[in-house]
Simulated scan of single mutants.
Amino acid sequence: MGELKLEQNKLIFQIEQLRMQLCNLAKEKGISHHSVIELSQELDNYIVQYVRQYGGRNSKAGEQSLSRSSSLPD
């Protein structure tokens, strides 16, 4: 069970890293720039992977992890 939690935390970390990169890139280049759109799509893929693996909002673990990460500043 500990290995599963480690993998979940790694995925959350990747999502948060991409989210921060996306915010910075969007501020720098604007939200319609092709590099911002590409990074947004990459982030979407990680989020979909997270929801598929950990149940997203219907999962207690997913709910706690995502609500904690969504409270981080942009």
Rank of each mutant, 00 (worst) to 15 (best):
Y46S: 05
L18F: 03
Q64V: 14
L66T: 12
E42V: 08
E3S: 08
L66I: 12
K10S: 10
Q53L: 15
L39F: 02
E28R: 09
E42H: 10
L39H: 06
Y50L: 02
Q53Y: 10
G62K: 05
D44E: 13
Q53S: 13
D44M: 09
M20E: 14
G55I: 06
E63L: 15
K10F: 03
A26G: 12
D44W: 03
L6H: 09
Q17E: 14
K5L: 12
I15W: 00
M20G: 15
S32I: 10
Q41S: 12
A61G: 00
N58V: 07
L43E: 06
L22Q: 10
L25A: 03
G62V: 02
E63T: 04
I31E: 09
N9G: 01
H34V: 08
L39E: 06
R52W: 03
L43S: 06
K60C: 02
E3M: 06
I31Y: 05
L22C: 06
V51N: 14
P73T: 09
S70C: 04
L6D: 13
E63K: 15
S69F: 07
I31A: 04
E38G: 02
S71V: 01
N58C: 01
S71H: 11
M1D: 11
V48W: 07
F13E: 15
Q41L: 09
Q17F: 00
S32R: 11
G55H: 05
E38N: 10
C23Y: 07
L11C: 04
L66D: 05
G62C: 03
M20A: 14
S40V: 01
R52K: 13
E38R: 08
S40D: 11
R57V: 07
G2F: 15
S32K: 13
S71W: 04
Q8H: 07
E42Q: 15
E3G: 01
E42A: 14
K27T: 02
C23F: 06
L25Q: 09
S40W: 00
R19V: 01
N24Y: 03
Q64C: 08
I47Y: 07
I37W: 01
R68A: 12
G55N: 06
S70P: 00
I47R: 14
L43N: 09
E42M: 11
G30W: 03
A61H: 07
I12N: 03
C23N: 11
S40F: 00
G56A: 05
K60Y: 08
D74H: 01
Y46M: 06
Q21T: 07
L66F: 07
E3T: 08
N58F: 13
S70T: 04
K27R: 08
K5C: 03
H34G: 00
Y50D: 05
I37P: 01
G30F: 04
L11W: 02
L43K: 12
K5F: 13
L25W: 02
K27Q: 10
Q53T: 07
M1A: 12
Y54I: 03
Y46Q: 09
